[in-house]
Simulated assay, not measured.
Amino acid sequence: MKAMTIKPGVSKIGAVHWERRLFDSLIPLPDGTSYNAYLVEGKDKIALLDTVDPMTSEILMEQLKDVEKIDYIIAHHAEQDHSGCIPLVLEKYKEAKVICTPKAKTYLMDLLLIPEDKFITVEDGETLDLGGKTLKFIHAPWVHWPETMFTYLVEDKILFTCDFLGSHLATSELYATDECKVYEAAKRYYAEIMMPFRNFIEKDLEKIKDLDIDIIAPSHGPVYNNPKFILDAYNEWVYAKPKNIVVIPYSTMHGSVKKMVEYLQTVLVAKGVIVKPFDLSVTDIGELAMALVDAATIVIGTPTVLTGAHPMVVYATYLANALKPKTKFVSIIGSYNWGSRAQDQLSQMITNLKVEVISPVFIKGFPKEEDFKALDKLAEEIVKKHEEAGIL
């Protein structure tokens, strides 16, 4: 990957990790990812904005081989996919200083063992003049770690946002030309990484709304030369009320829960509700996370395993609780034979969700006529709640 010019004196470097399929041993990457670094060359000084994941360090160092000096390394975020190669860059450019927030300094010293005398910490709104290129630093805590910041390049109207507004998408293109594909990748990224910090993101969207922005340059995925595209998407995901959607993550062992899910889906669809079922034995957890962004209701479906919920359902419930979607209503359906505490177990796992719990439907064995009637009642209650919320 060669340097790509964004504006005179501003170029995108970094690495495209085409084959990576899992992030943090947790997050699926169906489209790979990229680690974007940027060079900003002023008349007097040169700054490198972020580095790359150590797995791709050779690519970054090859790109820097003809760069005679770097005066500053701007560390927006201490996570190693951005900061992991700072020690290598400091080894090559021994006079360079690392610029970051005070909290990031502590994290980088702990994670990468960078000496304290290599740091310059900056406060919110502080600027740095490179000679005709002015960097303005904007603190953005909890997007998605507490030490994060953005950089605004004043003269060129470029906002460097690190993880914020990014996407796990491997691409050789500089700009987000295929907006449909980028939208899906960015939504997946928002759902998996940013959604738990929605309240902080609201403040950051407010903080940058008056900036004159020509280009948004995140640290994953393509650069946006149409900033409105990604800002509009985030405003929808963050501010818009949930949609007329019921998400049903479920597991089934002998078919009882599957039959319940199929019946409930049929009844809800007939009443005008969009239903998205996810069989957790084959589900890409990122697809589930994306569905949660818009869902007004979650119905958790589980068989009983050793008196408790199925382990896959426990995991999905934990995930939904951690992601904190805008969901308004939750219910639980399930089946057991000789006894179950799954309902209580799952109810205790959704304490982060500001939801109204709709009466669960738990049945004994395979669903019978009276059980289908109970599911009819659940569907009616969901429809009623959606109507009252003004989304149906």
Rank of each mutant, 00 (worst) to 15 (best):
I70L: 09
V314W: 06
S172N: 11
Y250R: 02
E126C: 00
F164I: 10
A185Y: 05
P311Q: 01
K368C: 07
V275P: 02
N226H: 14
E262V: 02
A291K: 12
T127M: 01
L112V: 14
N235A: 07
G286W: 04
P249S: 09
V273K: 03
K12V: 07
P54K: 04
F229V: 04
D294I: 03
E41V: 12
G42A: 02
I215V: 15
V269Y: 07
M260A: 02
D24R: 08
L108F: 07
P227Q: 15
Y239E: 08
K354I: 15
E380L: 13
E126R: 05
T302G: 00
N244M: 06
A320R: 01
P242Y: 12
A140I: 15
F23M: 14
F329A: 06
A104D: 12
V275H: 03
P196T: 15
E206H: 06
K377R: 09
I363S: 12
A15T: 11
M253E: 15
A37F: 05
V357K: 12
G255P: 05
I120W: 06
V89M: 13
G272E: 05
L60V: 09
K373Q: 15
P102T: 08
F137P: 03
G132Y: 08
I114H: 08
L22V: 15
K181Y: 11
I13L: 11
F329R: 06
A295N: 13
L169K: 12
D371P: 04
L346K: 12
P8D: 02
W237T: 01
V313C: 02
E116N: 15
Y152G: 00
F197C: 10
I46S: 02
L165P: 00
F150C: 08
K157M: 11
A170F: 13
T327M: 06
T297D: 07
A296L: 09
F23W: 13
T302R: 00
D212C: 13
A379V: 09
A342F: 04
V10E: 02
D71Q: 01
Y152A: 03
P8N: 04
P102K: 03
Y93P: 01
L22K: 03
Y234T: 11
K136E: 07
D31G: 10
V361D: 01
F200D: 07
H77I: 04
M4P: 02
T302V: 07
H144K: 15
S83H: 10
K103W: 09
I158V: 09
D294K: 06
T101L: 09
T121G: 01
R20E: 14
Y263C: 15
A379E: 02
H310F: 05
